[in-house]
């Protein structure tokens, strides 16, 4: 990840991201439809559900916000809930810094907007392989964004027709995708210590009764600190 070659931003990179994300798009469909069904249940219009998904573009946090919905909307409560759930994305954009450093203006702002769990995993892998074309992020992000909004709207339209209750096996698609992406992030035995610490801390924090994002924030910080500490004592 040296800054030896400059970061580029080309259609070729965009297309590469598009190609990588295409097989993943169906895995968002159940989750998006549930958010659509729930927003219909909370009395949101189709337009409101679509605008929310287009502007927020973060499924888990939308799900949690809809759980706290009401009339009038408790703006402060839903905003805080969304911020806390999405705090896990801050270390993601930090880890992608080598690419963002080469971007300016709208390219930087737009690329930052499209950071999601799956686009992060896919792009970090490409970055580690030495790819320097940051347009890959938008290539991953734009199709994800379009299909997310489309699936939420579809769920809203079909609300009442489909019954996709919480706990349905199809909703496991999101986590199953993350499990598969996790495999691609494995670099070798050196990952065992930081990953083990991260997992143990995450489980411990959850056992203490703290829900997301606290397990992931504590696990990611302490796990990666364990890895950095080990690297330093080796060097």
């Amino acid at each position: 990840m040296s800054a030896s070659s400059p970061v580029t931003f080309t259609w070729g990179g965009f297309y590469e991201g598009f190609r990588l994300v295409l097989p993943l798009l169906p895995s968002f469909a159940p989750f998006g439809m549930v958010v659509g069904v729930l927003s219909a249940g909370e009395g949101l219009s189709l337009l409101e559900a679509g605008v929310m998904s287009a502007m927020v573009f973060a499924g888990t946090s939308q799900l949690v916000a809809l759980g706290a919905w009401g009339s009038p909307v408790p703006v402060l409560a839903v905003t805080l809930a969304v911020f806390v759930i999405n705090m896990r994305m801050a270390p993601m954009s930090a880890a992608l810094a080598p690419w963002f450093n080469g971007l300016q203006g709208w390219r930087l702002w737009a690329s930052l907007f499209t950071v999601t769990d799956h686009s992060f995993a896919l792009s970090v892998n490409e970055m580690r392989r030495g790819k320097r074309d940051a347009a890959l992020l938008l290539g991953l992000g734009v199709p994800s964004w379009l299909s997310w909004v489309a699936m939420v709207c579809l769920g809203h339209v079909l609300a009442g027709v489909v019954t996709l209750r919480p706990g349905h096996p199809l909703l496991f698609a999101g986590l199953a995708t993350m499990c598969a992406l996790l495999v691609t992030l494995w670099r070798g035995r050196g990952d065992m210590l930081p990953w083990g610490v991260a997992g143990a801390v995450g489980l411990t924090v959850q056992a203490m009764g703290l829900g997301q994002p606290w397990p992931v924030l504590a696990g990611a910080l302490i796990g990666s600190a364990a890895g950095a500490w080990r690297d330093r004592s080796r060097a």
Binding site: M1, R88, P91, M92, A94, A95, A97, D117, F120, A121, V124, L175, M178, C179, L181, L182, L185, W186, R187, D191, P194, W195, V197, A198, G199, V201, G202, L203, V205, Q206, Q212, P215, V216, A218, G219, A220, L221, G223, S224, A225, G227, A228, W229, D231, R232
Partner: peptide
């Protein structure tokens, strides 16, 4: 030290997000 942490961050974020969610 923080730069070294960032190289470990991707896997650690995923592990500590997935494991508690799946266990729940």
């Amino acid at each position: 030290f923080v730069e070294a942490m960032l190289t470990h961050m991707p896997g650690c974020i995923f592990v500590s997000f997935i494991l508690p969610s799946v266990a729940a």
